[in-house]
Design a protein around this nucleic acid. Structure first.
Length: 479
RNA sequence: CGGGGUGUGGCGCAGUUUGGUCAGCGCGCUUGAUUUGGGAUCAAGAGGUCGCAGGUUCGAAUCCUGUCACCCCGACCA
């Protein structure tokens, strides 16, 4: 379409009210439904299918690095949770408790896991005896529960689905290597599959995970200029091992503590996909993660031969390895077009009597809404090209958007002005003191997103206090 | 947890200020016909004790009290 008239009136424009737009898209794309309990959402088929794709793609990548899946219990005894001091302090405010079994009060309260470090540690303490038992490279897919005050679909729910990897190693160095390896895996997944460009870096002391030695993160920028932590990888050192007594005998018959890591990605990624790629017509899914990649819409479907041709084309596309659906409902074509767009299906193919006469179809990209006629003889090749192009273009657009919304600040006035007037990332130098970080957050609501691996020298001094700078930091307002 | 907003057929809303004539509209749904290249048209239908619980009143969607849920903005967090 040449004009950019808004086709779907029910979706609030992204630039008018981003939060409302987000909610509208979530509803219109039929990703989820609200349940009868605050903060607990129902994944509808379209939403859960995206998670299943994320899961299978990540799971394959994990296994290629030697990771095995396990499943740990849902409940954690109070005593176990309290073994690591920083950890319990970090999570205590948001855990939910089970206090009764049937009618009887429990002798020890059980919390519903907010994360499973303590369960893995308790398990590892028994499992690991010798250096021959190492490394342990376990992961679990599950849901966890955190009693959040405010909830939003996919971005913050009380129960959310995720994977948590927990590994145990002989040395700190080996744990560090695994921590970095998983961060790299996350970054590649985000960029190659979700088409979301990310900044890799380390969290500051203030922002790191409760109980971790070091936390690494991939940070992405949403369309409204807010940051989203999209995956984290932690090196625990031997802190948990000491708290839980996870020791092994090394080759010299000496007792050593293990060094551990953990790393996770969550259903929040679905929120990221929506907020990075979506537009005023609805969701836009990268082909690599789209549960349905090609939507075939028949025109005049009751006419002899139309549906047959649609199914025939669908079959050959399916055989060629694409995920294809034919919309055979008796809605009007215009309805189906809009529906297809709201759901974010990357490629739409229209087939009607006119096309069949010419042995062609009309192919329409979701991301640009560009139309073209394609010969039915070439459809598999052309679909492949188009989907690859869409995937690449979506990444490039997101990256260009991030770069256009990444600023630098040399002094505090510039920093405050940018935070207030230009939503996005700010690159600025930092002295390394918690006090400056606290002050910035207090006065601007921006937080340090990460100390990026790729450092630049913006200036010589801390943007906040003017003392000599240690690092360049990405700052921003975050979800 | 603080501030703001909203709860009325499946969805979106009007009605609440001023209690009675208020169970209404649009979309969707069902059946039939005609349609189909950007949310088709006509006809005939079905569907709600107005979030929940108390109270005031001859009478409550409307007033009062309580309560629950959801949304938005903050503080805390993936």
């Amino acid at each position: 379409m040449a004009d950019d008239k808004k086709l779907v009136e029910e979706i609030t424009s992204r630039d008018v009210d981003f939060a409302q737009w987000y909610t509208d898209v979530v509803k219109k794309a039929e990703l989820m439904a609200y349940s009868s309990v605050k903060g607990f959402m129902i994944f509808k088929p379209a939403g859960f299918a995206i998670w299943e794709k994320i899961k299978s793609e990540l799971d394959r990548r994990f296994k290629e690095t030697g990771v095995e899946n396990v499943y740990m219990p849902l409940l954690i005894p109070e005593g176990l949770l309290e073994k690591e001091k920083d950890h319990v302090e970090g999570f205590a405010p948001e855990v939910a408790w089970v206090t009764k079994g049937g009618e009887e009060p429990l002798t020890e309260n059980m919390c519903v896991r907010p994360t499973s470090e303590t369960l893995f540690c308790d398990f590892y303490a028994n499992e690991i005896q010798s250096y021959r038992d190492l490394p342990k490279l376990y992961n679990q897919w599950c849901s966890v529960l955190r009693w959040e005050k405010e909830t939003r679909p996919f971005l913050r729910s009380r129960e959310f689905l995720w994977q948590e990897g927990h590994t145990a190693h002989a040395t700190f160095e080996e744990a560090q290597e695994r921590t970095e390896q998983m961060l790299k895996l996350y970054a590649e997944f985000a960029e190659e599959v979700l088409a979301i460009p990310v900044i890799k870096g380390q969290k500051t002391e203030k922002e790191k995970f409760a109980g971790a030695e070091a936390t690494y993160t991939i940070e992405s920028l949403m369309h409204d200029g807010k940051a989203l932590q999209s995956g984290t990888s932690h090196n625990f050192g031997d802190g948990f091992a000491k708290a839980f007594g996870i020791q092994y005998t090394d080759k010299d018959n000496k007792l050593q503590y293990v060094h551990q890591t953990s790393w996770g990605m969550t259903t929040r990624l679905i929120g990221a996909i929506i907020m990075v790629h979506g537009d005023d017509e609805g969701l836009v899914l990268p082909p690599a993660i789209a549960p349905v990649q090609i939507n075939i819409i028949p025109i005049q479907q009751k006419k002899e031969g139309v549906l047959d041709k649609c199914r025939e084309v669908a079959d050959s596309l399916t055989t060629a390895g694409f995920s294809v659906k034919v919309d055979e409902t008796d809605k009007s074509p215009g309805w189906k077009f809009a529906e297809s767009e709201m759901r974010g299906i990357p490629l739409r193919i229209e087939i009607g009597p006119r096309d069949i006469d010419n042995n062609e179809c009309v192919a329409v990209r979701r991301d640009t809404r560009e139309k073209e006629n394609v010969s039915l003889d070439d459809i598999c090749t052309r679909a492949d090209e188009l989907l690859k192009t869409i995937q690449k273009d979506m990444f490039n657009r997101a990256k260009a958007h991030r770069e256009a919304h990444t600023y630098t600040a040399k002094d505090y006035d510039e920093f405050k002005d940018t935070i207030e007037n230009k939503p996005g990332f700010i690159k600025a130098m930092w002295c390394g003191d918690r006090a400056c970080e606290d002050k910035i957050k207090e006065e601007t609501t921006a937080t340090s997103r990460c100390i990026p691996f790729e450092q630049e020298r913006i200036s010589d001094v801390c943007v906040c206090c003017g003392k000599p700078a240690k690092h360049m930091v990405y700052w921003g307002k975050a979800y």
